[in-house]
Design a protein around this nucleic acid. Structure first.
Lengths: 157, 157
DNA sequence: TTTCTTGCAAAGAGTTTGCAGCTTC
DNA sequence: GAAGCTGCAAACTCTTTGCAAGAAA
């Protein structure tokens, strides 16, 4: 944790930005919620718990800055909100997402999986891929398990 | 063209909606610009050329309706705007996009390409895939050709 | 001092909604 | 005439920006 903060601090410095208390508080929230996909508002509320004096605009500005430096990825699942996701350190590519259309949960896939597809696209479409976004929409294992169980229960009637 | 309008009309009717003149005008614009990825505002301006009395809210409502009926797909490339894309008739899956980070052009890939990946995801993550979104960000063939040419020119200096 | 950063409030962009009037069946 | 649809304007949500004050180099 402290290590990662330290490294992010260096990344900022190498682009002549400072890790101010507000920025650090924001980064800490992102680190503590790495599994989630927080909106700017979500981050703001969480940062506020520990640093009540922070302003929403500062959070937006910090998230924008972190996105620019590729420390976080800004994603959009189609609801009207941008979400922010810490990049895995050293990750060349953006990870993928599984969005459950029943419960709304968002799971992550860290594996690349797209190597073959990218080769085809680069070759056949003559397109130089720099990044990708892949999201699957469907039923997550939790909701699936639940409905399977429900069925079993019904069968007992 | 008229065929497709006719079929969309039937799809609306089967859900007890009417193909009003405003809705038809909107659908026609989408059909005429199938290659593009129009925002609601874009659609509005184009519809207005032929039906100047239409309101922006009607266009939004029509696009929402068409999205609900899965006649169009609502997509989001990360700029703050929703874009609307007519589904290929009978397409089981959403097509993919190539977004050029130099010129902003958006090209489409109709081929599925994800069959193998989906099989892995369904199996390993126990996730039932209903739809997917895949977007590649990079340099399109046009920009690539152009910069290759520029380099050649520079070499002549 | 000079430059960067912040908080606040106001502005902006995109989208949705309430409502009265108009169509359509 | 009931139900659905439309245009307008107002409202709303998310995000950005201007600015004066504060912190850091």
């Amino acid at each position: 944790m402290e290590n990662r903060i330290e490294r992010i601090k260096k990344q900022l410095h190498s682009s002549s930005y400072k890790l101010t208390p507000q920025r650090e508080a924001t980064v800490r929230v992102l680190l503590e919620h790495e599994e989630d996909h927080l909106s700017a508002e979500d981050v703001y509320l969480l940062v506020k718990e520990k640093s009540p004096e922070i302003g929403l605009a500062t959070v937006y500005r910090t998230l924008e800055l972190l996105t620019e430096l590729k420390i976080v990825d800004k994603i959009n699942f189609g609801d009207g909100v941008s979400r922010y996701d810490l990049r895995q350190e050293g990750a060349a590519h953006f990870h993928h997402h599984l969005v459950c259309i029943e419960c709304g949960a968002v799971d992550e896939i860290q594996e690349d999986l797209l190597e073959d597809v990218e080769e085809i696209v680069e070759k056949n479409w003559n397109f130089i891929i720099k990044d990708h976004r892949l999201t699957f929409h469907g039923i997550c294992h939790r909701c699936h398990d639940r409905s399977t169980k429900d069925e079993e229960t019904n069968n007992l009637d």
